[in-house]
Computed example of a mutant assay.
Amino acid sequence: MPPNGYAWWYVDGISDDGKRAVSVIGFIGSVFSPWYAWSGRRNPANHVCLNVATYGPGGRFTMTDRGTNALRQTPDSLVIGPSAMHWRDGVWVIDINEVSSPPLISRVQGQIRLTPSALTGVELALTPDGAHIWRPFGPTSTIEVDLDTPGWRWQGHGYFDANFGTRALEQDFERWTWGRYPLGGGSTCFYDATRLDGSTLAAAVYFDAQGHGEVIEPHPKARVARSLWGVARGTRADAGYRPKQVKAMLDAPFYARSAVRTCLDGEETVGAHEALDLKRFRNPVLKPMLAIRVPRRARWRFD
């Protein structure tokens, strides 16, 4: 992977009752790590982490930046320190053994199992030169969460994708929003972005349960209320419908993740949504703030 490069593998899930949610991201070249930025992004493999965030009663956030000695990879697995993501008989299994960030410092342990209805062959370039790629592996999935915390054993609908890039996100983007919504036995994903050169991305893809992807005409843009930090948010919806956040998840000065209810082709649906403001992220004042939430453990080694 070149300097400034990155790769991440992302899983999210929302419980059937809508009361709990989870997101897990395995990073090589951790794009939101201040330590990677301060290093000049010379060596992505020296800044790896497994970010785990649980939303609901007893929710926690973990994002420890580790060095090259904490990384092991095979074609079917990603091991980062004491945690791992790997394929097992068609299931993407995530074994978690992390410590949450301040102020609620505690161990986060357990397993998450994500089962895609099918794997897709879809790949989308987010910039014309292909410097940033979105790869939705399992947009229609089920998820089983089993963590060593009371109340954190549940099932729901899930999602699995990856992003790869050869430049820092803030070199090419001003902002973006993304959303994935269960729909019609499959799922629909929207990716809207404004690039630094003023060009835009407006992608909409429907995936059926067999993993076939179909590029569709995006539904009309619809505003979602700003996050607590004032991050601008929007998604897609039928004309005249006002989408609404139904569950707050991650709220940061430059980033917001939430569960959003929208209506697509007459069907109401709740899915995961994110809004990323890279203009804010470029502000150097944010980096020391992030360092509190993203501790560095450069010397971690396998026993």
Rank of each mutant, 00 (worst) to 15 (best):
P253R: 09
A225N: 14
T54Q: 08
D251T: 12
R113M: 14
W9S: 03
G156H: 07
K244W: 02
Y36V: 06
H273F: 02
G266S: 11
A7R: 04
S15N: 11
P218F: 02
A53D: 05
F32P: 00
G266T: 08
Q111T: 08
A232W: 01
R153D: 15
T140E: 00
I96F: 00
M1F: 09
N51W: 01
K221R: 14
I25D: 01
G211L: 11
V79H: 01
A298F: 11
D172W: 06
A275G: 10
Y10M: 04
E267G: 15
R257E: 05
G240R: 10
G158K: 00
A232L: 09
S77H: 05
W176Q: 01
S83R: 01
R88T: 12
P139L: 01
C263P: 01
Y6F: 15
S106R: 02
A209Y: 14
W178N: 04
A248C: 07
D95G: 13
P182G: 13
K287P: 04
R236L: 03
A298M: 08
Y159N: 09
S187Q: 09
T194E: 14
A70M: 01
L264V: 00
Y206N: 06
E98I: 01
V93K: 04
P182R: 12
D95V: 09
M85Q: 07
P116K: 06
P103F: 07
H47A: 12
E267K: 15
F27P: 04
G179Q: 04
A204Y: 00
Y241S: 03
I143R: 01
G59M: 05
V11K: 00
R297M: 15
W35D: 02
A118C: 05
S199Q: 02
V31F: 15
F190W: 02
R226S: 10
Y255W: 14
D251N: 13
L276Q: 03
F137H: 08
F173H: 00
R20I: 10
G67L: 07
T68F: 11
F173R: 00
Q155W: 06
R167W: 00
W176C: 10
S141F: 10
T64Y: 03
P102A: 04
P253G: 08
D172L: 12
V224Q: 04
Q155S: 12
H47F: 15
R175C: 05
A21I: 08
P75V: 00
A45V: 11
L71F: 05
R223F: 10
A7Q: 13
T115N: 03
Y241V: 09
V285R: 14
E174D: 14
N69P: 03
H86V: 07
